[in-house]
Simulated assay, not measured.
Amino acid sequence: MKFQTIFKLTFFFFLSITITSLSSCSGEKDAEKTFSYRDFLPPSKGGRGEILLQMDSSKWEGDLGAAVRELYMAPMPGFPQPAEPIFKLYHAAPKKVNDLLEEYHSIFVILSLESKTIDSDILRKKFSKESLDRIAADTTPYLIVKKDVNAKNQQVVYLIGKDDEQLIKHLQANEEKLREIFYKTERRRSYLVAFRGGEQTGRMERYQKEHGFKISIPQGYQEAKDINEQDSGFVFLRMIDNANGRDRNVFVAYKPYTSQKQLSADSVLAWRRELGEAYMKDPDRGSYMTDQTDVIPYFSQEINFKGSYAIEIRALWKLTSNTSGGPFLGYLIVDETKNRLYYIEGFIYAPTHKKRDYIREVESILWTFEP
């Protein structure tokens, strides 16, 4: 009896504390939070650069599967041979997909409505009959992109067409668009890796004040050069990992924009060689940085860089002593407001490692740049 009395008193004591605590919190607007279903999703799974492909097993072995592999497993441009694929593509037959695989960070679902297999029937159940009938009657496939379907930071892309021929034509005609959908997601993932230790806000503010551009700088990067001349400049940042032999490098150069003749890949490479000879030297060997485009062709394309016209270049760099080399990625960006040309680049040195994930890390840093 005495124990029950003590228990009751203790229970009511803690209950009163809880009610008081809840009452005080309810009056504080700052403590209020609106939850959505996304807050309760598990984190997405999967390695860097990976796409989980869900499609009919027979289609995977046929021409449709070959078209998908050609699109996403093409070699990385500007990489040494044997080149690494742009993405790792893992095929999962729909009948073998479990809850764990449904939480993959990047999922590509392809459905050819002409297929009548068990795999295709499983995929059909993801859509209403009305939607499938409308797709079957259309002359082009349907592309649907969804975020956070079964996990946080997840992207699921659905491509549905009436038959294999229609889907293959769509894949071949929209290569860059279909790659870019997953590439943006991968760039974000690489950004989170590169900046997991935070930013160097002081240095970032100094560059904005002294050079007039913005760029986010991860912790761990050291300043190798800071040249500020009249209307031109050069900033060189490095993360040197001697223990593992994996160096990451980023630089920003700028000069006046005087002619459209400057807007070509060859002109960019010529400027890059000048920068290498002037600022990126190996004093121990008397060599400097150049490129290997005389041996291995470069890749270039015109792009929209956050609203500005730009030229993207991917190729291989080397020291003139032939003692070091690796892939680089650069962007020539036109700032018409300041009449400036910017060239921003990331390059890596990782002779005994796969290089794709590291080049994507420096790429994610470049995409924080603002003139």
Rank of each mutant, 00 (worst) to 15 (best):
L52R: 03
A224R: 14
L100Y: 05
L111F: 10
A194W: 08
R196L: 00
F108E: 09
K177V: 11
D164S: 09
S321T: 08
Y298P: 13
K147G: 08
K209C: 08
V193W: 10
T201R: 04
E363T: 04
L341F: 00
P43E: 05
A67D: 06
Q301V: 14
V235E: 07
K338D: 08
D63K: 02
S26M: 13
R238W: 00
Y207M: 13
K184R: 15
I51T: 04
D335A: 07
M76L: 15
F236C: 12
T290G: 03
A243Q: 12
L366V: 06
K184C: 06
S287T: 14
A92K: 10
H211G: 00
K29N: 11
L132D: 10
N339P: 06
S128L: 00
Y72G: 06
K59R: 13
V97N: 02
F11W: 11
I144M: 12
R179C: 01
K146G: 02
F236L: 05
L143K: 14
T117C: 01
E361Y: 05
Q222F: 07
W317T: 14
I344A: 02
E50I: 06
T139F: 13
I311W: 09
K225N: 07
K318W: 00
A137V: 05
L263E: 06
Y309L: 10
T290K: 01
V149W: 04
G233E: 05
F13Q: 05
A270G: 03
V252P: 05
Y298H: 15
G325C: 03
T323P: 01
E103W: 00
Y72F: 15
F299P: 14
T290M: 01
T140W: 00
L53N: 10
Y72S: 04
E274I: 10
M1L: 05
M239R: 11
E84P: 01
R360M: 13
L263C: 01
G198Q: 01
P351N: 15
I122E: 11
K225A: 01
D30K: 14
L159N: 07
E175W: 00
F234N: 02
C25D: 15
P371N: 04
G78I: 05
K33D: 07
E32H: 15
E32P: 01
F79L: 06
G326E: 08
D148L: 01
E130K: 02
M73V: 15
W60E: 15
K8W: 09
D282R: 13
V193F: 09
E205H: 09
Y279P: 03
F108I: 12
E229V: 03
N249V: 13
Q208A: 07
T352Y: 12
